[in-house]
Nucleic acid binder design. Structure first.
Length: 177
DNA sequence: GCCAACGTTGGC
DNA sequence: GCCAACGTTGGC
């Protein structure tokens, strides 16, 4: 096989620089992004088509966006904190990481008084609707497949709202649908 | 609504 | 730098 596809870089586990980052080689990367459907659902995305992914306030998730996500990458939209959590559809990264303005908005639930406009702490990307999966792939179903044992989503106590998915995992999940 | 798991904060 | 307290996430 020719060429380096990706370089895995593990940095600190907690705090400002937390994250495990796939720096890109020649190929796209795959992601999973959680959203509570009462806040923003696949239906909302299908309607608006493109949206800024505001409100990420976790360093590890931020670092995945900043260091790993590139325009054209694909991501699963996952519904969390709802009756049937699961993967609902596919979206595309339409714009790479840039400052999330809600961190400076005192009226926003995502306001962060400690973030300075000249040194923004929180970033977001834009995502674009690609398609809905033919059926939802539920969390319970994902757990039944050995092939997905390493999926970050399935690790005990997982709370990351943005996480990488390997190419193999991506293809396997798509084949389930 | 409960609660386990986890990240962050802040006192020392 | 440690660690207890606290707040949040998210499945069930």
């Amino acid at each position: 096989m020719a060429g380096i596809i990706a370089e895995l870089v593990v940095v600190e586990r907690h705090g400002e620089n937390a994250g495990t980052v796939w720096r890109r080689g020649s190929r796209m990367s795959y992601w999973l992004m959680k959203s509570e459907p009462t806040v923003f659902s696949i239906d909302d995305l299908a309607r608006v088509r493109v949206t800024p992914w505001e409100g990420v306030r976790n360093y590890q998730a931020r670092n995945f966006m900043r260091d790993g996500m590139r325009k054209g990458d694909l991501a699963f939209l996952y519904h969390s904190s709802c009756e049937v959590p699961g993967i609902m559809g596919v979206m595309e990264i339409g714009r790479e990481a840039y400052p999330d303005p809600s961190q400076f908005d005192p009226g926003s639930p995502y306001f962060d008084p400690a973030s300075r406009p000249d040194d923004p702490r929180w970033l977001m990307v834009d995502v674009r609707y690609r398609r809905r999966l033919p059926r939802a792939i539920t969390l319970a179903e994902l757990r039944t497949h050995r092939e997905l044992a390493a999926l970050a989503l399935l690790r005990r106590g997982n709370r990351l709202s943005i996480m990488p998915v390997t190419g193999k995992q991506w293809q396997f999940i798509l084949a389930l649908a």
